[in-house]
């Protein structure tokens, strides 16, 4: 099986920063896997996802998605959820849907509209008039309405309440294309633990471990959440 996402000795240094945000990371993600990208603040999770999305240029090393370096071809098969609101606030919900439908051939408008209806989001509603949580749900609906090969979700549970988290996780599971890989970064490990096939743990830009979630639980004799708390105890 050809890997959908690989990095080779990937390093990223930000100008003015003392250390590397990512330091020689080599990683392989195969299709059909849900991979949790775990680590404390500043461990390089967002940097890795942004490099994969083509929003950052690596200092050295390489990123490969479906056999290609990040560019228009990989962006057509990657569905990316940023850790912030990227949709212009002047847009209405219907404008955001039509923007995705215009640019992504794998976007399913019917699916998106059904999800938006579930969330009681009116198509004429302006993004600027929505709460932060609703904005995040809208972005997630759009991202999960694509039949992408690789989903990159950066802190999808970041700013939402616990009740909404359950909806978001269900949305991810229900709409995730099973032939695709899903790379999900979060601090809320307990919430996502049941979803994960694999866990990638980073510390200060370096790989601590990349294992099957079950194997890691078996090896450590505790849940991923408990294992994470132990490894990164302050």
């Amino acid at each position: 099986m050809e890997a959908i996402f690989t990095t080779q000795a990937l390093t990223k240094r930000y100008s003015g920063a003392s250390g590397a945000a990512l330091d020689g990371l080599t990683l392989t993600v195969n299709p059909g896997r849900i991979v949790g990208l775990l680590g404390p603040n500043g461990s390089g999770k967002t940097t890795l996802i942004k490099l994969a999305a083509g929003l950052l240029t690596p200092t050295s090393g390489s990123v490969c998605i479906a056999g290609q370096a990040p560019g228009p071809a990989t962006k057509a098969v990657v569905s990316y959820l940023p850790d912030r609101m990227a949709l212009p606030s002047s847009l209405r919900v219907e404008d955001a849907v039509s923007l995705y439908a215009d640019f992504y051939t794998d976007f399913d408008k019917t699916k998106a509209n059904a999800m938006l209806q579930d969330l009681k989001l009116q198509s004429r509603q302006r993004i600027s008039a929505m709460s932060k949580g609703m904005q995040e749900k809208l972005q997630l609906c759009l991202v999960m309405s694509r039949a992408a090969k690789l989903y990159l979700l950066d802190e999808p549970l970041g700013g939402v309440d616990p009740a909404a988290r359950a909806y978001i996780l269900d949305t991810i599971l229900r709409n995730y294309n099973e032939d695709a890989a899903l790379l999900l970064s979060t601090h809320l490990i307990a919430d996502v633990e049941r979803l994960l096939d694999e866990a990638v743990i980073l510390r200060q830009g370096q790989l601590v471990t990349h294992q099957q979630a079950d194997a890691l639980r078996e090896e450590s004799g505790e849940s991923l959440d408990a294992y994470f708390r132990e490894v990164f105890k302050c």
Binding site: A53, G54, L55, G71, P72, A73, K75, A76, V78, Y80, P82, R84, M85, A86, L87, P88, F103, Y104
Partner: peptide, 17 residues
């Protein structure tokens, strides 16, 4: 200018050059 800020997170992930 906004293309290089938050809006870039949408615009630079579109499949365009």
């Amino acid at each position: 200018y906004r293309l290089l800020g938050d809006e870039g997170y949408l615009m630079f992930t579109l499949p365009v050059t």
